[in-house]
Design a protein around this nucleic acid. Structure first.
Lengths: 335, 335
DNA sequence: TTAGATTCTGGTAACGATTCCATCGGGGAA
DNA sequence: TTCCCCGATGGAATCGTTACCAGAATCTAA
């Protein structure tokens, strides 16, 4: 009873050659019934299970997928990760999780490490699209890549893209129709598709209404609550004060709502709010918040499908997830 | 430019033996300066990086840790996972994430797969402590194990234990002192330490106050919102109606709050609420909720430390994380 | 000057699996 | 009966790395 059981041990016990054991266990057709019986008995008795490491070295495939994101603690991405892991697991793949901590440098190191681990593919939500690291690092990855909500040219990668614009446009229209003009928009960094696409929807709604875009009320710099808090405070001191806020993601919304609380502004009464994305307990606790929703489960399982497709020899492609605006108490009855 | 660069290619380019390349790159002392220079030049020029797979096969260590939890989408565990991954990454380990989907069978399969992947250790939050699978599966793991908030005898595992009892006891005392007697308690399944330990604190507070435990107001069966919703509804129809609720975790709290909303009960006014754990945006949106808080960052990094300790040859041990009750508006002014 | 120790280097055997190739029989066809 | 082919098996090479062993070259000391 020393160390794990290897194929040698099974061969010895069954009194046959290594290669025969391998053939039986991998279901090779040219094996006699008696051989099959002997080997299976021995494998069973010894509790043999093949070493995935050795198999990987031999076959060149690790049945392992890297998953790189800024921060798994973001509830949206946690759901994406869960759905993705589940789907990959069903197909015999394991997921290696890495956080980038919001740093392109860490992100780059993560890619390099995954390359050395010989992962069969990578699913990633990049910190930035314009980093000098990114393209070089990714191009040296000898494995299929699925990008989440990012647009980087010349990578030959698959992508799961969310159509934020359509939802944000509806939301903005809804606010404009309710009489809002000074609408503040606070969302994540401008150097990623997510933010640009959201702004696109925001702009389109103003353009179609024949109104000028309130450029001075747009703050795009960080996904964190701190960034949103500072800018929301600043906007709330303007004259005239914005009558509505659109806040991107959980971090931005947290910051915006804290600013409201500081000034004792009641959501849905003194000020309107639309959140981009939803998260756990979104539906509970006081005022119901209007939102632009995207299904994180769908994003995760679609990412898994896309990588599996390429692993099965198909060409990389893009898949679009839609968004849906729902008006709730937080954006009604303010004007 | 075919396939990844191996140590052979480096040896060929430098005109030396394989073994010399290996020695230089692994920092062996007995290497001449000229040899070092030649090999480093070649490795640099070819962009060589050692294959972790091959190294692992040779060395027996994969520098990989398995992380098994019920559900990464639980915000508390997402933060635990992040902190854990971060700490392990700093020490050169990668994390393989697996969800058990609340099934002991899936959990068992996950353990088996991690064993085949030859992970160096496993950090796990078990679905149940009394499963027949668990012990057998875990004992066959030839790697150190860190349990999160679970108590299974005879495993020789490390553990990060949360001292829920102390926080829950304070919370219960606080409610009792405010005059509450019919206090409902809804939390996760009873077959795990977390729940038992919480109930312990709950019971102690009643005992010390010389009051009988309101056993008919205790529901311990599931971590999900659905379970909590059904039981909260049921309790709210009792006569007398409970005047306070203690809800374990995010799922339970969601269910309880939904039940309140259905009956149009205002938290902190018509009914008191204490939540066990906190989560993103906990501090925002209307009524501030009293809570028993534990630091998920600390749990995650402590788990990483414990596994690293054992990997460095130390004995497994237990580490205790404390909890802290904070009274907020949700539990004040109801009576 | 030479024995002995000390560097340094190359060759080779592992780690645990798969797969190709060669060999050996047995069965079918002429 | 003879020839051929195919099913079944064992042996050896391979994946990319490290580590042991032996030998060559250099150096120290008597």
């Amino acid at each position: 009873m020393e160390g794990p059981v290897t194929i040698r041990d099974v061969a010895a016990r069954a009194g046959v050659a290594l290669s025969s054991v391998s053939r039986v266990l991998s279901g090779h057709p040219d094996v006699s019934a008696s051989m099959r019986a002997k080997v299976e008995e021995a494998a069973q008795a010894l509790g043999y299970e093949p070493d995935l490491l050795a198999q990987s070295l031999r076959s060149g495939a690790t049945r392992t997928i890297g998953f790189i994101i800024r921060d798994i603690a973001n509830p949206l991405f946690a759901v994406v990760a869960r759905a993705c892991e589940q789907e990959l697991r069903r197909n015999g793949y394991s997921l290696i999780l890495m956080n980038s901590d919001g740093s392109v440098e860490t992100e780059s190191k993560n890619f390099a490490l995954l390359r050395r681990r010989r992962v069969d593919g990578v699913i990633a939500s990049l910190v930035a699209e314009d980093s000098p690291y990114v393209k070089k690092t990714i191009l040296s990855l000898r494995a299929p890549l699925v990008l989440l909500d990012r647009d980087v040219k010349g990578l030959n990668a698959s992508a799961v893209i969310t159509d934020h614009a359509i939802g944000v446009k509806s939301a903005t229209k809804h606010l404009i129709e309710a009489g809002h003009r000074d609408i503040a928009f606070i969302s994540g960094a401008a150097n990623v598709y997510t933010t640009r696409n959201r702004i696109k929807g925001f702009s389109e709604a103003f353009a179609e209404a024949g109104l000028a875009l309130p450029e001075k009320l747009i703050a795009l710099g960080g996904f964190d609550a701190e960034y949103a808090l500072i800018h929301a405070r600043h906007f709330l001191l303007k004259n005239p004060r914005p009558s509505a806020f659109i806040a991107g993601g959980i971090g931005s919304t947290a910051g915006v709502v804290r600013a409201f609380n500081e000034m004792n502004l009641k959501i849905g009464k003194d000020i309107a709010l639309v959140a981009l994305d939803e998260w756990p307990l979104f539906d509970v606790f006081a005022t119901e918040v209007s939102s632009v929703y995207r299904d994180p489960e769908a994003i995760g399982s679609e990412a898994a499908h896309l990588i599996l497709e390429v692993l099965n020899g198909n060409e990389p492609r893009e898949s679009v997830i839609d968004t849906k605006f729902t008006a709730r108490a937080s954006s009604q009855g303010v004007r």
